[in-house]
Design a protein around this nucleic acid. Structure first.
Lengths: 223, 223
DNA sequence: CCATTTCTTAAAGATTTTTTAAGAATTGAT
DNA sequence: ATCAATTCTTAAAAAATCTTTAAGAAATGG
């Protein structure tokens, strides 16, 4: 699991959960400090998203208790506008702080930054499928050892395919992963990128070997 | 032992202890000036983390006493917001000062900086990439043996690049590393430094061989 | 077999990001 | 206090990417 969300307001918690998972993280939602602690006991999380206002026990004491056993990055959320909770949060060991109400992009960028600080750029893997090779760290793609120029979203889409070979990827799933759940871009853009990607990686884009169309559903990379 | 923490608030002390040890340092926690002095007597520490507010004897007089026998770097912590304790701490021989509440990253970076100042750069390495050579200790850069004048942030950025050749470095990652996460400097400044760095190290800055732009993501040094 | 829906393709227009250049603000040294 | 060096901001231009559009082709379901 990537992220444990500790938020007692169920509606808001669910909302945050949705956005976070839509961004490709795995997450779990705990409604109280107790639930969080028992959750932490059973599974390891990479980041905590902790509400200051919790029933029974407030977020600060929860954090203090958590810090005795765990040291993953913690991002605190609070509705308070004054600086007190921010300061107290930092003292008890929060790594960053976000004030409610917050925008989803801001939340996500804070999460991303904390993850990077704590775990570095850990996506240094090399993905291989047949004669196609993708080095994620250097963003290099080769086919039969010869480099292909694949940038931006095309590259991101290709990585998603390479991480899920042989699996049919729903167009919505691809879209959410690449553009983000809340993007207002037209779905048709995805088709265009698929076209361009095929142009670059397929021997014959009209008879694609890598990116197969799965009608009414999405695409499948390889088999 | 690396660090002696002198902090009477047990809970906070434990917390700091945990973070410091989690960062790879060895540490010991003393609850009073007396305990600290007897601890110092028996074992050598490389750095002291000293709370201003101590029971019985305050941190300043403790520091004065400590300074008579020991000269390792001292980092003082205080909850006071005015400048008095900061000034007094510096006068009595503190090397740096951190105001409570502080964030863990800030504390760790201060510790790191003090350690570096006191015990030298542990990373006195010479980085080489093709005809480019960077001596980190003396902050000298040569290209084909001829010295280049690269100072300040340009140098820091170059070092980060040289330590990660062939890897795409996210602009945010570079920014956080060079300016720090909490910096309020504009991201566009990074672009400008990249330009200047190219001006100095590239044969043709318009067709860079070393620092390649990776659109939407960041930069890649070499390959 | 036909109407409907979905997908492909190509090209143009819009948007975003980066580069560049110049100057202001800050810092450090003499 | 003055000067030089460094750092930061800004604005415009250039470059690359992203999005939309529209027309035609392919698949689907009756």
């Amino acid at each position: 699991m990537d992220i444990l969300i500790i938020e007692d307001n169920e509606e808001l918690g669910k909302l945050i959960f949705d956005f976070i998972t839509a961004s490709g993280y795995t997450a779990y939602l705990a409604g109280s400090a107790e639930e969080a602690l028992s959750k932490l006991d059973g599974e390891s999380y990479r980041l905590l998203l902790l509400d200051v206002m919790l029933p029974g026990q407030d977020g600060f004491s929860a954090l203090t208790r958590i810090r005795k056993k765990y040291n993953m990055p913690v991002l605190m959320m609070s509705a308070r506008t004054d600086d007190d909770s921010k300061i107290l949060g930092m003292e008890t060991g929060a790594d960053d702080y976000i004030e409610k109400p917050f925008s989803v992009p801001v939340l996500l960028s804070k999460i991303k930054a904390l993850m990077r600080r704590a775990y570095g750029e850990n996506k240094n893997d090399t993905l291989t499928y047949k004669n196609l090779k993708v080095d994620v760290a250097s963003r290099c793609v080769t086919k039969d050892g010869k480099p292909l120029e694949i940038n931006g979203k095309e590259f991101d889409i290709l990585v998603m395919f390479m991480r899920n070979p042989g699996r049919v990827l729903d167009k919505n799933a691809i879209f959410d992963e690449i553009w983000g759940y809340y993007s207002e871009t037209e779905m048709s853009s995805l088709n265009v990128y698929i076209r361009w990607l095929r142009e670059k990686i397929e021997d014959d884009p009209k008879e694609p070997e890598f990116i197969k169309t799965v009608w009414r559903v999405g695409y499948k990379f390889g088999d």
